[in-house]
């Protein structure tokens, strides 16, 4: 019996030690560092005090970035639901023989660089971008609209990046529904809409909520989109961390902000896992 346990553990040991040494231990270091002091000379002094956290909540500047991060994450999630559910439903219901090709297209963006997808919006929304070019050409506008470098363009870029995650999560959930259930509902007198509302929609909720969690968490940690598509006032929490750590080399404060972000996301993920189970999320990625 003993060797039966040792063999899988042996196979697992490289992966476990990699994750333990390169992730678990470093994250513990971040937590420890968040209590340290920073000397005026820039040196880090080991300590146990909550000054870095107090500094974060000292005035409204840092919390407002946190609130903005959560707001952008919520807005992105809602838009992804609105834009993602119907295409997923289309894939579930469609009888076209091109279905697998269309699904492949949805997965295609996973293979396209995130930075390319993000910066591609500059070509569309910029002062000389496609949108303004067309509006001016057809005489609707005289001067270009400022469409870039605001919260809207940041969200737009994020939605384009995260939409495939949402569509696939919902689709996996829909695909698991026995089609005879809706047939039964309609044959018992439900309209198509009622059958959808009473049968299909509730049964697709696991996928929908998994998609929401994934979109929210990925948005809340995003660094690139505000950098490329946002203006000076659109920084999110990840941008703040980068500025403190790489910009001003304030490791203790940067660590404290990281712990705050990680703490909030952990609470959300653990709550989700407690009531809905995290396994659903990994299903769609296979």
């Amino acid at each position: 019996m003993q060797h039966k346990i040792w063999r899988p553990l042996g196979l697992l040991s490289p992966a476990l030690s990699a994750v333990f040494l390169l992730l678990v231990v470093p994250v513990c270091f971040v937590v420890v560092y968040s209590f340290w002091l920073r000397a005026p000379t820039g040196a880090d002094i080991p300590a146990f005090q909550f000054g870095n956290y107090a500094k974060f909540f000292e005035d409204f500047f840092y919390p407002s970035i946190l609130i903005r991060t959560i707001r952008v994450a919520l807005e992105t999630t809602v838009i992804c639901v609105l834009m993602g559910y119907i295409p997923a439903y289309f894939f579930y219901k469609t009888e076209t023989k091109h279905k697998s090709f269309l699904l492949l297209l949805v997965m295609l963006p996973f293979w396209i660089s995130f930075i390319i997808r993000t910066m591609s919006w500059v070509n569309i929304l910029g002062d000389t971008g496609l949108f303004n070019h067309l509006l001016i050409k057809f005489g609707i506008l005289d001067s270009p609209l400022a469409l870039l470098y605001n919260e809207g363009s940041v969200i737009l870029g994020l939605v384009q990046y995260l939409l495939p995650f949402m569509i696939l999560n919902v689709y996996v959930s829909l695909e698991g529904i026995d089609k005879s259930l809706t047939e039964a509902a309609t044959s018992l007198g439900c309209t198509e809409w009622q059958a959808f509302k009473e049968v299909t929609l509730p049964l697709s909720l696991p996928g929908l909520s998994a998609g929401c969690l994934l979109v929210f968490v990925l948005t809340a940690g995003t660094y690139l989109s505000p950098m490329i598509l946002g203006g000076p006032g659109n920084d999110m929490i990840a941008n703040l961390i980068f500025k403190r750590v790489i910009g001003t080399l304030d490791w203790p404060f940067g660590s404290a902000i990281s712990v705050i972000l990680l703490g909030i996301l952990s609470i959300i993920v653990f709550t989700y896992n407690r009531y809905l189970g995290i396994a659903q999320i990994f299903k769609s990625m296979q």
Partner: peptide
């Protein structure tokens, strides 16, 4: 293989997907 704690270990190994890259970046660099 079947072994105790299998699901927990699997979740642990998949967890980095949910951790923001900024935090992975800071942690390893620190």
């Amino acid at each position: 293989y079947e072994f105790p704690g299998k699901n927990a270990l699997n979740t642990l190994l998949l967890a980095p997907i949910m951790i923001p890259e900024v935090i992975l970046g800071v942690a390893l660099l620190l």
